[in-house]
């Protein structure tokens, strides 16, 4: 079979750390081991019935069988704005301040694609969610890790202003003024 070389972008992607762990678990399970899996992060409960019912009814509606509006239905973005008002008393313009994402994971990659150029910097927590790293690698940007301290059962961020001086130093030395003007630095946590 002919093998095609992957693009340099694909080759830049970090190793999927957990696929190795998953393989070990699967191998042991196939040998009959009763594994209690506390490693994975997928919720174990089902989606509530009323949400499933809503999908089932809507799936039968022909208006949804056609292409959706490119940037999503207004009713959904308005629901997001309503949710943020109810839960957090935050006002959002549903058209200008809400964007639908294909899951949080997809959104994290897209943010890098939208904001980072080659050589730009992303400040990323350590430890942090490995999916933060993928988008940064795709854009040939650089990650600067923000070490977190473990205290009282959770990781707390270090004082950001302490970090800021070190980061600012390395930001200015590793990126050009032009890329910085393009908003080429972001911090995710």
């Amino acid at each position: 079979m002919k093998q095609y070389a992957a693009s340099t972008m694909i080759r830049r992607l970090p190793e999927q750390y957990f696929s190795k762990l998953e393989k070990s678990i699967v191998a042991l399970k196939s040998q009959g081991a009763d594994i209690i899996n506390l490693a994975q992060g997928s919720p174990d409960q089902p989606t509530p019935d009323h949400i499933i019912k809503s999908l089932q009814e809507a799936a039968a509606d022909p208006q949804f069988h056609r292409y959706s509006p490119f940037q999503g239905f207004s009713f959904f973005k308005e629901a997001v704005a309503e949710f943020y008002k109810d839960q957090y008393d935050v006002d959002l313009d549903p058209n200008e301040e809400v964007c639908i994402l294909f899951g949080g994971k997809g959104g994290l990659v897209e943010v890098s694609q939208c904001l980072l150029n080659r050589g730009d910097v992303a400040l990323v927590p350590d430890p942090g969610y490995p999916d933060y790293w993928s988008g940064v690698a795709m854009q040939e940007a650089n990650m600067h890790m923000m070490p977190l301290r473990h205290e009282h059962g959770s990781f707390l961020s270090m004082k950001t202003f302490q970090l800021g001086c070190a980061m600012k130093q390395s930001c200015y030395s590793s990126t050009t003024r032009t890329t910085r003007q393009g908003g080429g630095v972001f911090c995710v946590f």
Binding site: P48, H50, I51, I52, S54, L55, E57, A58, A59, D61, Q63, F64, Y67, S68, P69, F70, Q71, G72, F73, F75, F76, A79, V80, E82, F83, I100, F102
Partner: peptide, 18 residues
């Protein structure tokens, strides 16, 4: 993309507003 399947958006709306 051309956004999420509309029925999923409808169900997501139910999730957020009920």
């Amino acid at each position: 993309y051309v956004s999420l399947f509309g029925a999923v958006q409808r169900a997501a709306t139910t999730a957020l507003t009920s």
